Amino acid sequence: MPYNPVRAAHVIAFFALREGGSINVLKAIKLVYLADRESIRLRGHPILDEPRYSLPHGPVNSVTLDHLNGAYRENQETWQSILDARAGNNVGLSDCELSEATLDSLSEREISILDEVWQRLGHMDRFELAEWTHVPENVPEWQDPNGSRRPISLERMMAAVGLDQPIERAREHNSLKNAQSLLASL
């Protein structure tokens, strides 16, 4: 499936709801990455399908980070129907009626994964979470990019979470994604 900004905004909205309506961008993007990582571990595929990179402050989902930073004008209206424009280092909910029940682009299992990640790591602040992602025992696929960025492949994430045959699984996932994209364009 192609990148879905509504799903990404709903993932961030989930964490913002848990944080009280607004969340630090660095904390949000770490939790988004860690939720995808947990989804890969439990289901063999991420919640969001997008490129990921090792950055100096840890791993990130790059398209979602770009959306948080306002880089995608074509999806801005959709994005801002769920999340306010970034205010300094925070992003909040644009709709005060938003609740976990209205995050309908996410399945019950995905909400459960987000909840598991929040229960385990949501108590950390942005700096603690960034440091936590630098520990090889926690996130072995992150590699110091030396001030730049390094891609994190799906195969690398799959291997890091302990899935068997990560190369074959990643190829299978990409083949399915390509087929879904082709069918969506018809």
Rank of each mutant, 00 (worst) to 15 (best):
V6L: 08
R7A: 14
I12M: 11
E19H: 05
G20N: 01
I23Y: 01
V25D: 03
L26F: 02
L26V: 10
K27F: 02
K30L: 07
K30I: 08
L34K: 03
L34C: 03
R41K: 15
L42N: 01
P51V: 09
S54H: 07
P56E: 13
P56V: 07
G58Q: 12
S62F: 08
S62C: 01
T64L: 06
T64H: 05
D66A: 13
L68E: 05
G70C: 10
E74T: 05
N75C: 09
Q76A: 15
T78Y: 00
W79G: 05
Q80H: 15
L83T: 03
D84P: 00
A85G: 12
R86S: 00
R86F: 02
A87D: 13
N89Y: 01
G92N: 01
L98G: 00
L103N: 04
S105N: 01
L106M: 10
R109T: 11
R109I: 11
E110D: 12
S112I: 00
I113P: 07
V117S: 07
V117Q: 04
G122P: 10
R126C: 07
L129Q: 04
A130G: 12
W132H: 15
H134M: 13
V135G: 00
P136R: 12
E137M: 04
P140D: 05
G147R: 03
G147S: 04
R150C: 06
S153W: 07
E155S: 15
M157Q: 10
M158R: 14
M158L: 15
A159L: 11
V161C: 04
D164R: 09
D164P: 14
P166F: 02
E168V: 08
E168S: 10
R169M: 04
Q180K: 12
L182I: 05
S185V: 01
L186R: 11
